[in-house]
Design a protein around this nucleic acid. Structure first.
Lengths: 150, 150
DNA sequence: TTTCATGTAATTATATTTGTTACGTGATGA
DNA sequence: TCATCACGTAACAAATATAATTACATGAAA
């Protein structure tokens, strides 16, 4: 693992979920898709649940399913729900009173804010349905998992 | 410490250097400005030296100075010389053969590339001279350091 | 009431970044 | 010449951040 990869993990799993005919999938299944741990999935998807992007049910036969149609879920919403900056400028939090530092931060903040806005607008135009279409003609294996190489 | 803060550290130090009337400053002095270690400075500035943004001389009376006028040094050049992405998308390098993963990466790469381009263009328009102007009327203490609170 | 699956806290592991120590090289000046 | 200064780097240690794991409580279904 390296950087914060929650967004791509979430997208990956969500797209797989979109193929599941609204059948609930367990965090264990989802973890297999993302090659990670079930707890990591539950943790990552907690934010998505709060945002209504997914819903989860406990107990026997429980699991996770999409909260609304794939066409109504944008990448921007997902990113938001994850609480991820995606564009993170590492500023050196050094001397709060230094005028030089303030000028540096102001300039960088401004430039980064614009880039971040552009990215957000771009992500807002892409839905899960769009991505699903890009994946190409996917089968709908009733419940079986294609062992991760779909 | 947190994220990769080399860019803001470099900018901070470079601006201080711009006030030094082309007098060489030692890495120890620079480290004091950035509240870090001289070796960290020498390491960080190695890339800037290769890019001609700064020059260093060894031996007695040696040190670092700007390689060209502040108006000829853009933030984009500095970022480049540091070899820093600044916008890093943490993609989960999982299953290379997974069509879902490929679709996800393609979509994100495209969006991120545009944001990165915008940021680069923005940074290319800002020079050290611009930032120095933003700092406001700065004194020119012959050789003395203002103990970091300029 | 047994089993399944989520919800979370706590802990451990791993990777990245930064800080430190050590020593070599070149340049200056007494 | 030689002592000193300052860079150039490798090697190592420390701090941080992220992810993985363990453990257990809660709720739902069979």
């Amino acid at each position: 693992m390296k950087r914060d990869s929650r967004l791509s993990v979430a997208l990956h799993v969500l797209l797989h979920m979109a193929q599941q005919d609204d059948q609930p999938v367990t965090s264990e299944q989802m973890a297999a898709w993302a090659m990670t741990n079930p707890v990591v999935i539950r943790r990552t998807f907690a934010g998505l649940r709060e945002a209504g992007i997914v819903a989860s049910t406990k107990g026997h036969g429980g699991g996770w399913r999409l909260g609304r149609a794939t066409a109504a879920i944008s990448l921007a919403q997902i990113q938001d729900a994850l609480g991820e900056p995606l564009i993170a400028l590492g500023k050196a939090e050094e001397s709060p009173g230094c005028a030089v530092e303030q000028a540096v931060n102001a300039a960088l903040d401004d430039a980064v804010a614009q880039a971040r806005d552009l990215l957000n607008r771009k992500l807002a135009t892409i839905t899960l349905a769009d991505l699903a279409a890009d994946v190409g003609p996917m089968r709908h294996p009733s419940t079986e998992d294609q062992d991760h190489v779909v």
